[in-house]
Structure formats: structure tokens, C-alpha cells
């Protein structure tokens, strides 16, 4: 939590500088810091402090329990698969939306944001109704011997739904800025369209693909509402980590819930930082935007 202090310090220093014309720096930054601390920083630090409160031994005992490990593995594993599916189809969708014209394109483009706008509980019951054994899609998949609802596969479906806009909206602006001339140059030099894609387009998209992946992944790991209806929620099989937190809270096991929360927070912050670093590396290496 050293960074806000740093910002306040720089605030003090900056105020002494004379060339500032606009008023309100102290007021707005002060209010920002107070509100940020009250709403986000202090509440979040409560999780970490409470987990220390019950001792490291207890923390380890909770976290290493097979049921907890299974739920963490499921949450991170299913999110990884869903984010990967989103990268593939998000690339196709954003490519089609940027490069081609077809009827109702604007409507389709607006629809991509549906998972942002549709409440997760609604998405959850809708997907369950679709993929349940008697649902529109479930019936058909059942005849192929594929069970989606109430299995880990259902979790992947829900996480794919909520993650899609992150990839598309990250890729679109980059694709729009990508010079078509570069591809045409590659084509005149004798490259096939597949070669042009792999050698010219993909390297330029790579940072945006990673960012979209990271955003979709981060959202998926913590997702609760859309998953719990379709998951079946069987311990050790289809129980995601956020659900286990809720279960422990309902049993008044605050220390247990807090321990899982700390692991989730640390893991997702670490992964986000790692991918940010990777993205930074890709940006400097390819000299992209």
C-alpha cells in the first residue's frame, strides 16, 4: 500500500510548483485517495489481515484440503480453456467485424457486448436452460452422448460466454489500425494469405491477443453468477472456488473462506502481472503500439 502514500507525497511536492493553472488538484486527488481507500483498499486489506489473524498453520490446513485444491484447479483450469476458446473465436469475430461487410453487421457488433450487459444470473439460468438434457441444445448434444449442463464442460461454456467481449473489444481497435498495405505488400512479394497472416498480421496482434486473453481469464476465474446454475456444484468435481467461499461463509467458517479468497487474489494478481510483463516484452520487441 506504499503507492497511494507516494501519490500523496508527490501531491505535496507538486503543489509548491508555480506553473499549475487549473484549480482543484488537492481537492480531486484528495477525494480520489480517500474514496479509493475507504471503498477498495481498506476493505481488501481486511482479507489479507484476517487471513494472517488465524495463523499460517490454519491457513495452510484450509488451502491444502483436497476439496479446496480441486476447486482452485477447476476454477483456473476451466478459465484457461475458456479464455483460449475466446482467443480463437474472438480473433475470428473481430476479424470479420473489422474487415468484412455483411447484413446486420452493426447489430452483430453491438451484440458482442451482451455478456457485459446481461446480468450473470440471467446468463446462468439461460445457459442452463439451453444445455440441460431437455434444452434446445442439450437435447441435441445428449443424442451425441455429450453432457454439458451440470458437468465441468458447462462451466467452460458459461466462462466462454462471459469472456468473449474482452477479447473482441481488445482486438478490434488494433485490427482497425493495422495497415492493409502491409499485407498487400506481403502478397505482392509472393506470400500466400496464410503466410501473410502468420508472418505479418499475427505478430502485430500478439500483444492485444495476450491482453484480451488476460482480461477474459481474470474475469472467468472470479466468475460466480453465470457458473453456479450450470455447474452442478458437486464437491471435488464441479465446484468452483468462488462457490466454495460462499459455502464456507454459509457455515460461518470465516477463516476458511478468507484463506481461499487470499489464494485466489494472490494467484490472479500474479497471473495478471505476469501477462502484463509478457505483453510489455512483446510490445518492445515488436515495436508495436
Amino acid at each position: 500500500m506504499a503507492k497511494p502514500v507516494e501519490a500523496i507525497e508527490s501531491n505535496k511536492r507538486a503543489r509548491r510548483r508555480p506553473q499549475r493553472v487549473l484549480p482543484g488538484f488537492g481537492l480531486t486527488l484528495g477525494y480520489t485517495m480517500v474514496y479509493l481507500s475507504l471503498v477498495v483498499l481498506i476493505p481488501l486489506s481486511a482479507v489479507f489481515l484476517r487471513s494472517l489473524g488465524s495463523g499460517l498453520g490454519h491457513f495452510w490446513e484450509v488451502v491444502s484440503a483436497p476439496r479446496v485444491l480441486a476447486s482452485l484447479q477447476l476454477s483456473f483450469g476451466a478459465s484457461l480453456i475458456a479464455a483460449s476458446i475466446n482467443v480463437v473465436f474472438g480473433l475470428i469475430v473481430s476479424w470479420v467485424l473489422v474487415r468484412y461487410t455483411f447484413p446486420f453487421k452493426r447489430l452483430v457488433d453491438a451484440m458482442v457486448d451482451l455478456p457485459f450487459a446481461l446480468p450473470t444470473a440471467v446468463a446462468g439460468i439461460a445457459l442452463t436452460a439451453l444445455y440441460a438434457p431437455n434444452g434446445w441444445l442439450g437435447k441435441w448434444l445428449m443424442s451425441l452422448g455429450i453432457k454439458v449442463a451440470f458437468t465441468p464442460l458447462g462451466i467452460v461454456v458459461a466462462l466462454t460466454f462471459i469472456g468473449l467481449p474482452f477479447v473482441v473489444r481488445t482486438l478490434q481497435p488494433v485490427l482497425e489500425d493495422l495497415d492493409k498495405e502491409v499485407e498487400q505488400a506481403a502478397a505482392t512479394l509472393g506470400a500466400s494469405s496464410a503466410q501473410a497472416f502468420a508472418r505479418v498480421i499475427l505478430p502485430a496482434l500478439w500483444p492485444a491477443l495476450l491482453t484480451g486473453f488476460a482480461l477474459a481469464f481474470a474475469r472467468a476465474v472470479g466468475e460466480y453468477g453465470s457458473v453456479i446454475f450450470i455447474a452442478g456444484n458437486m464437491p471435488m468435481k464441479s465446484e468452483i472456488a468462488p462457490l466454495l467461499i460462499v459455502t464456507k461463509l454459509e457455515q460461518y467458517d470465516y477463516a476458511g473462506a478468507t484463506a481461499i479468497a487470499v489464494v485466489m487474489l494472490v494467484l490472479s494478481f500474479t497471473i495478471m502481472l505476469g501477462i502484463n510483463a509478457l505483453q510489455h516484452w512483446a510490445l518492445t520487441r515488436h515495436g508495436g503500439r
Binding site: 507516494e6 501519490a7 479509493l36 477498495v40 472470479g222 461463509l249 478468507t258 479468497a261 490472479s268
Partner: peptide, 29 residues
């Protein structure tokens, strides 16, 4: 001002927190 990028990252922080943990935080408080 110094620390501006850190401040922007901190503002984005709730996006990286599971909604369930957001609720848990207020139970703990």
C-alpha cells in the same frame, strides 16, 4: 504527478477481484 500510473492500476483493482470476494470483504468488516 508521481504515482499516476499506480493510481490508475489501483482504480482498476475491483475488476480483478471476484464478486464473491467483494462481498466477503464487507462481511469481514
Amino acid at each position: 504527478f508521481r504515482g499516476k500510473s499506480a493510481l490508475i492500476t489501483l482504480i482498476d483493482l475491483p475488476f480483478a477481484v471476484s464478486p464473491v470476494i467483494a462481498g466477503l470483504v464487507f462481511i469481514l468488516l
